[in-house]
Structures are given as structure tokens and as C-alpha cells.
Amino acid sequence: MKFHTITLNINGNNRVVTVRSADTLLYALRGKLGLTGSKPGCLNGDCGACTVNLDGWPMKSCLMLAVEAIGKKVTTIEGLQNAPIQQAFVENFAFQCGYCTPGFIMNCHSLIEQHPDADDEKIKEWLESNICRCTGYAEIERAVKSVLKKNRVP
């Protein structure tokens, strides 16, 4: 079938959507479901602006077909409700124009969840998946570290 009416679990809710087989998850989120927080950038898997969280792991939604997300738990930036990393971005001035920020936050949120003991090398490895041309990475790295540090306090 070239068209599918599918149920996607997005931000904890089951959403029914009709997509082409060829539609990316990014397109379905933005064009079909009105979730425009995930940003289209390169559309080629390079920039990371479209990053969402898929079953706890970061995923570039431009690199995934919407039909591949059936049975997965998708979290977009709209699904984060005052997550610690969001406040940390504000406190550490970790954005400027803000276009790449949702992707960065979803990637950083996944990192904090998956690797609460992440060291500098791990943080650098993960942050290389996202491109920001105006802020620089130092503030973003500081934001990640501030959350990791708070989470380690007994």
C-alpha cells in the first residue's frame, strides 16, 4: 500500500494519521499532526534540528519513515514539560536564534536519560549529532553538565 492510516504514540497519546509510505516522520509530525517543534533543516540527517526521542533514544525524524514509528513511543519537544534540560538551556544561555534548540534539547534529554554518568567524551560524541551556527557548544555542554551534576546529588 502506498497510503496507510496508522496509529502513532506521540507524547503519550495515540494519534491516528494517514500518511504516504514515503512520508518521513518529520513530515507527518509537522504537516499532519501540527507538531511544528521538530525543525526541518538539512532534511538529510546531518543537522539534527528535527531530532525527537524514540523509545528513549534520539532519532533524526527526517531519516525515518512515519510508518517505521508504528509501535514506538515518540516524544517531541512539545512532549517535554519543564524537563530539567529545558531550564538548564535558559540558565546557561545555551541558545541564540533558537532554531536548532528543539533538536539539541531532545538529544541532550536522551543523553541524560541513557547515560546519567556521561563523561566529557560521551557528551562530545552525542553533541556532534547536532549543528548550531550561532551559539557555540560550550553553553550547551554546560547545560548538560549542570543537569547531570544535579541528578548525581544524593
Binding site: G45, L54, P58, M59, E128, S129
Partner: peptide, 12 residues
């Protein structure tokens, strides 16, 4: 493998 593409892309 850890040098291929980038971390997020390697999840796909």
C-alpha cells in the same frame, strides 16, 4: 562503527 556518521544517525 563509532566513527560512522554521527551518534544519532547511528541509531538508524
Amino acid at each position: 562503527a563509532s566513527e560512522i556518521a554521527d551518534h544519532t544517525a547511528r541509531g538508524k
